[in-house]
Structure formats: C-alpha cells, structure tokens
C-alpha cells in the first residue's frame, strides 16, 4: 500500500507543472438575502486533487457549481484555465468546454443511448466528425469498464453503471478539470466502490479534480488537499494525513467526529 502510493507520487511530481487551473479570489455569493459563499479563496494547479467536505448547507456544492457557471457569483474573481468567468457568454462556453462535471443524480439523457450520450458533446460542441466521436466515446466507455453497455439506454443500467457513464461522458470532452458533486451519495452501498475505483484511476492518470464527497476513505487515498467548509466559508484545509489526524479547528473536529464515528 505504501509502496504504490510512493510510486504514484513520483509519477505525479513529474506531471504537476504548476499551471493554475482554478483561481478563486474573494468570491462571494448570495441566494437572495442568504450569504451562501463567504470570501472564498482557492487556487488549484494542474494535477491537484481537492476534496471538499462539510456539513450540508455549507456551500460546497455551490462552490464547485460556480466554477462552470451553473451558479452565478456576485462578487470576486474566478478564473478557470486562464479564462475569466464573467457574464460574457463566450467565456462561459469556453470554460464549460474545459470543465467536466459529474452530478449526484447522474443527469444522463434518458432518450439517448449510452454511446449517444457520450458522443453528443464532441459532435456538437467540438464539431468532431461522427466516426471520430464514436471512437472517443468507446475509448472512454472502455476506460470506465462498461463498453458492452454502449447501445443500452440509461434506464436499463444500475446506478453505479450510470454514474460511470456520466464520468465517461464528461471525459469525452477531454477537459482540463473534473468537478464531482457528491458522485456516490445517491448510490447503493455495493455500487459506491466501483465508482470510487474509477475516480481513483482517473486521479492516478493525472486529472485535476475537485470532489465534493463524504467518502473520507477516498479522500485519504487520493486527495492532495482536503478542504473543510462550514456556513459558506473555507474553515480549514490541509493534506489528508494532517487533516484527519490533527484537525485544528473545533468545527472540523466536530464534523469529523460525526462522520467518522459510524
């Protein structure tokens, strides 16, 4: 276990080149009167794996949804891969091309087959020819280990398979950054492992990812940084070992005791 993580780290040190993928500076967001994100400052470099955790209502989903403009931030600057995130539709479109998102409830398109779900974005957004898009789709479906399901429809797959398709669909755009919004929270326990394994493999291949999750085992294995959010603020962030073994803030200690207890 220790040996493989060292080998993985060695491989990663060469791939981490310091390019800033995400830069959030003094970001604030309100839902009406409610101040949901308070003075968020975050920098993510290429190849980094961030896990965001916290109690519900802490704003962690809102934070990552701001990164691809599914939510609009009212104050502060967000930059994704050098592109400024503002009201300019061109910027938003460009950012969305470079950012892949995996949702808690999969959000697969039920009227299209698995293969069509994955081919859609390359064909219509990147204007890839159909045959090439199909190759890319099959490649990523193989990578998430369900190539045989390509002609089925989402309704015919299990939850774990659907989520893996969702991951493949996001990967087909070959994004710079992957966002995961509680990807395993809606899954039956026996299917969580297959999705987490897929995400670990993705991380090992050098994908920059920000993952909102309650799966602390995953965080320990994969994260470079664990960020704890509460009431809209980033309360504490640290490397996983330090974070779990030596939490500094009282709120962090309380949260960890609640979720690591059972």
């Amino acid at each position: 276990m220790v040996k493989t993580s060292v080998a993985r780290d060695e491989k990663r040190k060469t791939s981490l080149d310091g390019t800033v993928i995400v830069s959030m500076e003094h970001v604030n967001k309100w839902f009406g009167e409610f101040h949901v994100l308070r003075d968020i400052n975050l920098r993510v470099v290429r190849g980094e794996r961030i896990v965001v955790c916290g109690p519900s209502g802490s704003g962690k989903s809102t934070l990552i949804r701001c990164l691809n403009r599914l939510e609009k931030h009212q104050d502060g600057d967000i930059n994704v891969h050098g592109i400024e995130l503002n009201n300019d539709v061109k910027n938003i479109d460009e950012i969305r091309r470079e950012v892949g998102m995996v949702f808690q409830h999969f959000n697969l398109f039920p009227h299209l087959s698995i293969l069509e779900n994955c081919m859609l974005a390359p064909i219509w957004v990147r204007k890839t020819p159909r045959a090439e898009a199909e190759e890319i789709a099959m490649h990523f479906l193989t990578r998430v280990k369900i190539p045989e399901q390509a002609s089925k429809y989402p309704g015919q797959l299990s939850g774990g398979q659907q989520q893996r398709v969702a991951i493949a669909r996001a990967l087909c755009m070959q994004p710079q950054l992957m966002l995961f919004d509680e990807p395993t929270s809606a899954l039956d326990p026996e299917m969580i492992k297959e999705v987490l394994d897929t995400m670990v493999e993705l991380a090992d291949d050098g994908m920059t990812m920000i993952c909102v999750t309650h799966e602390m085992g995953f965080a320990r294995r994969v994260a470079d940084r664990v960020i704890f959010m509460d009431e809209g603020q980033i309360v504490e962030q640290n490397e996983p070992e330090a974070f779990f073994n030596n939490p500094q803030s009282d709120r962090t200690k309380l949260f960890l005791s609640q979720i690591l207890g059972h």
Binding site: L70, V99, F103, H105, V125
Partner: peptide
C-alpha cells in the same frame, strides 16, 4: 428535471443545441 438542463449546460451545449 432541472438536472437535464444542467447536464446539457455542463457539457457545453448552447441554448438552442
């Protein structure tokens, strides 16, 4: 479901697409 709109947005499709 709102998630369908979000899924379409997240993969970069334009409004009309």
């Amino acid at each position: 479901d709102k998630g369908q709109y979000e899924g379409a947005d997240a993969i970069g499709l334009s409004y009309w697409q």
